[in-house]
Amino acid sequence: MSDAALPSAGPPARRAKPRGSLIGQVFEGLCFGAATLLLASLGGIIVSLLIGGWPAISKFGIGFLFSSTWNPVTDVYGAAGPIVGTLITAALALIMALPIAGGVAFFLTELCPAPLRRPIGTAVELLAGIPSIVYGMWGLFVFAPLFARWIQLPLMAAAKPGSILEALTTGIPNGSGILPASIILAIMILPFMAATLRELLLTVPAAVRESAYGLGATTAEVVLSVTLPYVRQGAIGAVMLGLGRALGETMAVTFIIGNSHAFPKSLFDSGSTIASTIANEFTEATSPIHTAALISLGLVLFLITFVVLGLARLMLRQQGAKL
């Protein structure tokens, strides 16, 4: 009977190879190919950014990173304004979005009545699916006027001459600039972070949580001393995912940040980010050095993202050592 399971005909040499060997080989090959393709395209992108940006890199040197002149007429370019704008908006967005995302995730996993969990969870995921141009248009046409009227003008009116608040709130009172762009970014990265955090919190074994409750811990205590430490590593990944999106977000920011290449001097001042500058100027960049400068900006963004991810890895490793 046992013979029936084997190929009925064929020399013993064939028999050594199990029936699924071809499928297995193809599967391995495809997986290897997928991984190689990913690495190859990553390398390809770096190389093509380097080649494309080389005219600007060789012309401006390291000064490209520190000069805030961006003059397409004289073909002199410096990336300091967009770099600073990118870092500030992404950092502000993260600071605003992280507590809210955490709150949403904890509410959904710990406090929310069971029948509401699904609808709210789905709503959060739907928010993540809205195209960024929609956020941009909404930001410009709906959010900016409301922000100017209810937040910006009262703040500007409340600022005493010479105070820090005044320095932070100078600008054009129309709801555009660094802070409004950061708020839009925060709204955009919020659903990503909330959804990921929720998934993470769901991975905490029920036994662990319930034993904590069994010991008489309050919800806050369970969250802070049991579930949060349990998912810490993954949580940093979720934060980095949000930060990555904030760093590279293009359209929504372009609409509302005011698009000035100079250093932003206050929260309501116009600024620019690397991605918004590229989106604004790439189609009409006719001089070779202008195109090269924009491609170099892309390379800088790539490096910033790389450094951010590297730092995240480092933090994870240190925490792993502590545990």
Binding site: V73, L140, A144, N174, E284
Partner: peptide
């Protein structure tokens, strides 16, 4: 000078005609 984008001495930039009109 004159170009399809310049280093503006002052002001803020809107994306496209509708961006300028909105601001």
């Amino acid at each position: 000078g004159a170009n399809d984008s310049v280093q503006w001495p002052v002001g803020l930039g809107g994306k496209g005609n509708d961006g300028v009109a909105a601001f």
